[in-house]
Design a protein around this nucleic acid. Structure first.
Length: 283
DNA sequence: AAGCGGGTCAACCGCCGGACT
DNA sequence: GAGTCCGGCGGTTGACCCGCT
């Protein structure tokens, strides 16, 4: 076994990502697709370890990510799923395709845990473990997991049969967004948003790691961001032009995703409707 | 205005398991 | 079957933010 040596190397940059690095990573993924993270630092010239690249992509740059402002519906779903699945954030995130496991985990730890503790009546609080979730429903957990899995499998099987799809599924498995050419445009939207935030609130010092992610002064900072914005525009037009060339067969994964999302939406709705005694107090 | 302390969240760390040789 | 590599996951950390005193 043993740990991956990539993060132990001297000269590997740590700390917050800069827009420059984001552009480099997205540009690489646009050319090669997500995956093969081991090769990403070498091929992009990024002084980051492969894990850091993967994390940055999956948590922030990946298309279709919604950030902040969890809706009541989403919070309900998270609370229910957490009660059913425990701290399996990746599994929970698969039911909320627009949210990342890290985001959900953070939201749970900073908001929902407290909310639950406040809302849970004394007699129910006794049934919450130290993480704030219910520990008295082993039976329903299995039943609901089984039902959801059955729904998903039935939908998947029907679709596979209908379309006779032969290509392998995306490495993220079911529920993870299928990488499509069109979706990369959303990555640039993500970076544009990050850039906007960067321009408004440039990082002050945050000198974690071997190389500080700071900019010398305001004007230099402005020039840099302008250049980056131009690069982004160029990237965006590249993505858009390649998106317009997507063939009909390449649309199948999108259709597949959409259909799965439909079945997921139904399952999610059923989940949220499922009564959990203490959550009634929450929302 | 300055200091303090709790809250937030991006990023890192280390373990695990599947794939491959 | 054993060893290695790599990606994924959950827990944790720490810098920054913000309200309070």
């Amino acid at each position: 076994m043993g740990r991956s040596p990539c993060c132990d190397k001297v000269g590997v940059k740590k700390g917050p990502w800069t827009p420059e690095e984001d552009v480099m990573l997205v540009s690489y993924i646009q050319r090669h697709g997500p995956g093969n993270w081991k090769a990403a630092p070498a091929k992009t010239g990024l002084m980051r370890c492969s894990k850091s690249c993967r994390l940055r992509w999956t948590n922030y740059l990946r298309p279709g990510i919604k950030r902040g402002n969890f809706t009541e519906q989403e919070e309900k779903l998270i609370v229910h799923l957490q009660a059913l699945l425990g701290n399996r954030w990746a599994a929970i995130a698969s039911y909320l395709p627009e949210r990342t496991d890290n985001d959900i985990k953070n939201h749970w730890n900073t908001h929902l845990k407290k909310k639950l503790r406040r809302a849970a009546p004394d007699h129910l609080a006794a049934n919450l473990n130290k993480d704030g979730f219910s520990i008295h429903q082993p039976v329903s957990k299995g039943q609901w997991e089984k039902k959801l899995q059955t729904d998903i499998n039935v939908a998947k099987q029907a679709l596979d049969e209908a379309l006779s799809l032969k290509e392998p599924r995306s490495p993220g498995g079911f529920g993870s967004p299928v990488p499509s050419t069109t979706s990369y445009a959303s990555s640039t939207e993500n970076i544009s948003r990050l850039l906007g935030e960067w321009m408004k609130n440039p990082p002050k010092k945050r000198t974690v790691g071997t190389e500080p992610a700071t900019v010398a002064d305001g004007s230099d900072h402005y020039n840099k961001t302008t250049v980056l914005a131009e690069k982004l525009n160029s990237l965006l037009s590249d993505f858009e032009s390649s998106a317009s060339m997507v063939s009909e067969s390449e649309h199948l994964p999108l259709l597949e995703t959409w259909l799965f999302d439909e079945s997921l939406a139904q399952a999610n709705a059923a989940l949220v409707e499922m009564p959990l005694d203490y959550t009634a107090e929450l929302f």
